[in-house]
Design a protein around this nucleic acid. Structure first.
Lengths: 297, 297
DNA sequence: AGAGGTTACGGGCAGCGTAAGGATC
DNA sequence: GATCCTTACGCTGCCCGTAACCTCT
C-alpha cells in the first residue's frame, strides 16, 4: 500500500530532478530511492517517472500524483504542527484543589503547566473536596483535584495519586510505637475538616461500643493539623507524605496500629463537554507530575 | 514517523470503540492494534485514547488527530480513485501512424485503448513519416507513430519497436538465395515512398560508382509493395514482419545479402505541453502493445 | 571514463502472531 | 470467570546499505 515514505521520496525526486539528490536530501542511498520509487509505482500501478538520461521528469500520472502527494504530506506536517502549537492552548482554566495536593505536587504541576502552555492561565482555589465537588457541578470551576473518584453524570475522572494515611504524634506525647485502637482512642485525634472523607473515616473507626468517646479535633488547614500534632496536642491522622520533614527531624513519629486505614485516592474530575482540550491537557500534566512525585504511595 | 497504517488503525479503533473490533476489521490481531496505537502515540507524543474499561474514547489530542487522519486517509483514497478513474480520460486524441505499424500492431493497440479508456476516441490517419512530422509540428495531430526519433524543441519521443529490414522476392524471380549487392542491383528494387527513410537508404546503398543505375520502384502503400513483389516485378526492401504470411506460404522468400540494412526504429512522438495526460497514457499503451508484439525485432 | 539509475545480495530491525499477564466488570 | 487491553518473545519479511552492473554522455 502507498505510504508516506514513498510519496515523500517521490516529491523530492521530482523537486530535485534526480534520485541521487533525493537520496542525499533524505539521508539514504541511491538504491533505496530507486527501490522506493519502484515500490510506489507498483502500488499505484503506473510509471510515475520518465528515466531519460540526466533528465527525470514525472509522467502524466506522476504529475497527478504529485498534487495529491503534496496535499497529503502537507496535511501531516500541518497536523504535527497543530499538535505542537502551544499558543493554540490559551485562556483560563479554573482549578479547585484539595489542600493535601497543595502541599505535595501542586507547585511542580503549576510550573509544568506554565512551562508547556505559557498562553494558558490557571486560576486556583483551595477547598475541601465536598465543596470542590459542588463548585465543579455548578461549573464554577473547570477541574477539581480532590478525593475521588466522583460519580455524577457527564463527570469524568482520572486517578492521580494515592496517599497512605496513618497516625503520627509528637514523641513528647508518649504514644506507644505500636498502639492498638484502644490505646489510640485515649488520645485526642486531630484530622481533616468535618464532612471530609478522612474525618468521617476516623469517626467511624473509633465509633465503637467498646471504645470511649474520642476527642476529635478537625481543621480545614493542614498546616494547623501538623502544628497541633507537633505541639503534642494529640495524634494526627494524616498522609505521611505531608509530614515527611517532621518525621525526618523526629518532631513527629509514626504510630503503628492495628487500625487499617485505607489509602486516600486523589482524582482529577471535570465535566465532559465538546471542547475540553485545555482541561484534558492540564489533567494529563497533573497525572504525570503526580505520578512522578508519588508513584502510587 | 507517523504512517498511514497507524492513522487508519486509529480511525477504526475510534469508530468501533474497541481494539478488538479494529483488529477484526483490519484482519489482524488485537496485540498488533495495541502496538500500532502505542507506536502512533509515541510518534505524535500524546496519548490519543483513554483506555477506560469497555469504553475507549479519544482524548482531546485524539479528537484533533482524528480530523486530520480522516482528511489524510480520504485524500489517499481519492488519489487512488482518481488514478483509476478511466472516465476522467475522455476526449479525442488525433493520431498519425506510419503504414508499417498499421500492418503490425495497430489493431491491437486500438483495441487496448478502447478497452482501457472507453471514453477516449482515437482519430487515426495514415501517412509517411515525413508528412506525419510536419503535421505533428503544425499541431494537426497529437501523436505520431513514425520512424524516429524526431528531434525538435518541445518534442518528446518514446521508442516503440524495431523492425529488421531485408530483401524479399518471389521465387519466380530466381534471385539467388544469397545475393551480393551487384546481383541485387540487377533487379528492380521496390520499396517505400520517396522521401521516406528506407527509400533514401536504399538509394544511397545502391548509388555506387561500381554499380549500374538501378530501377527503384516506390510506393506509398505497403500493400502495393508486397503485391508487386509477389507478382515478381522486383526485389522488395521491407520489414520482414510485414510479409510473414507471404514468407510462410512461399509466395516470397528471404534473400540473404552482404548489404547491411540497419533496423527501422519506430517512435511515438508528441509535443510537450501542460496537459498531455491522455497522450502519455496512449503512448504507454502503444509502448506496451508494440513491445509485446515485437520484443525488439 | 564518469555519472547516475538498476539489480543482486546479505544483515538488521520493525512488525506480526502466539501466549501469558493484568485489570475490570 | 469472562472479556479485553497489554506485555513478552520468537519469527518472518521488509527495507536498507554495499557492491556489481548497465546505460548514456
Amino acid at each position: 500500500m502507498v505510504d508516506f515514505k514513498g510519496l515523500e521520496t517521490f516529491l523530492w525526486v521530482v523537486a530535485l530532478g534526480s534520485f541521487k539528490g533525493a537520496a542525499q536530501k533524505l539521508n539514504t542511498t541511491q538504491p533505496a530511492i530507486s527501490h522506493r520509487i519502484a515500490q510506489l509505482e507498483n502500488d499505484i500501478g503506473f510509471k510515475l517517472l520518465t528515466r531519460e538520461a540526466r533528465n527525470i521528469t514525472p509522467t502524466a500520472r506522476g504529475r497527478q500524483v504529485l498534487g495529491y502527494a503534496e496535499k497529503i504530506i502537507g496535511m501531516r506536517a500541518e497536523m504535527m504542527a497543530a499538535l505542537r502549537d502551544v499558543s493554540a492552548i490559551r485562556g483560563i482554566v479554573r482549578l479547585g484543589v484539595a489542600e493535601t495536593i497543595v502541599h505535595t505536587w501542586l507547585p511542580d504541576f503549576i510550573k509544568e503547566v506554565n512551562r508547556l502552555y505559557p498562553y494558558l492561565s490557571l486560576e486556583i482555589e483551595v477547598d475541601i473536596s465536598p465543596s470542590l465537588r459542588t463548585r465543579l457541578l455548578a461549573q464554577e470551576i473547570d477541574i477539581a483535584f480532590l478525593l475521588g473518584p466522583l460519580t455524577a453524570p457527564l463527570l469524568r475522572n482520572r486517578l492521580l495519586c494515592h496517599y497512605e494515611v496513618g497516625f503520627v504524634a509528637s514523641p513528647a506525647l508518649k504514644v506507644p510505637k505500636s498502639a492498638n485502637v484502644h490505646q489510640l482512642a485515649s488520645f485526642p485525634i486531630i484530622t481533616f475538616a468535618r464532612k471530609t472523607q478522612p474525618y468521617e473515616l476516623v469517626k467511624s473507626l473509633f465509633n465503637r461500643p467498646d471504645l470511649p468517646a474520642i476527642k476529635l479535633h478537625a481543621s480545614a488547614s493542614m498546616a494547623t493539623v501538623v502544628h497541633l500534632a507537633v505541639e503534642g496536642i494529640g495524634v494526627a491522622v494524616i498522609p505521611y507524605q505531608l509530614v515527611k520533614e517532621e518525621l525526618k527531624s523526629r518532631k513527629l513519629e509514626l504510630i503503628h496500629s492495628d487500625v487499617r486505614m485505607p489509602q486516600l485516592s486523589f482524582c482529577a474530575s471535570w465535566l465532559e463537554s465538546p471542547d475540553t482540550m485545555a482541561v484534558e491537557l492540564v489533567v494529563d500534566i497533573a497525572a504525570r507530575v503526580a505520578g512522578d512525585k508519588a508513584p502510587s504511595g
